[in-house]
Design a protein around this nucleic acid. Sequence first.
DNA 1: TAAAAATACTCCATAGGTATTTTAT
DNA 2: ATAAAATACCTATGGAGTATTTTTA
Lengths: 87, 87
Amino acid sequence: MQLLWCKDFLVLAQMRNFSRAADQRCISQSALSRRIKQLEDDLGARLIDRQPGSLQLTPAGRVFLQHCEQMLKQDQALREQISNTIQ
Amino acid sequence: MQLLWCKDFLVLAQMRNFSRAADQRCISQSALSRRIKQLEDDLGARLIDRQPGSLQLTPAGRVFLQHCEQMLKQDQALREQISNTIQ
DNA sequence: TAAAAATACTCCATAGGTATTTTAT
DNA sequence: ATAAAATACCTATGGAGTATTTTTA
């Protein structure tokens, strides 16, 4: 599990379009497709219902979306906490 | 940020010895050294005080240790939640 | 001087891009 | 027929191991 995948998924969940989400993530459509596949393999569940034009999250996808938001917030909090820490 | 790094760091924090922690993680000492370095670079802070024989966590390291435990628990919870989700 | 960690070097695996194919509307 | 995602193919980057060097107690 990587934070990178969370960011990818978050953008994809918002855009509901691989090609445009890939642009926003500054990678190719094929790279995003593979990253999401990696993520789904890692979790052992489909996260996205691929209907070109009307992309939907699966139940697992909706669960993961919550998780993503939580993880990204915590990561940000961690970095702030660390930058406020005396070395 | 990767969960892999969290696992590495957790083991290293317990063992306080790169070589033995690397064994436990089933990678070479040099690989673990590089992974921890990557992690420190990613966070922009030293996490470990390297005194061979008496390895210590820095203040940032102690902050990160808490974060690691939280992340690993949440990841486990996520996977359980997903496996209980109807596809 | 002995241990432990970092580094140099090489190699391989994986991630990426481009081009193409497949799929669904 | 068109738009969008998946796949094939090739390349390049990064991560791994072994061997070596550096460091400090």
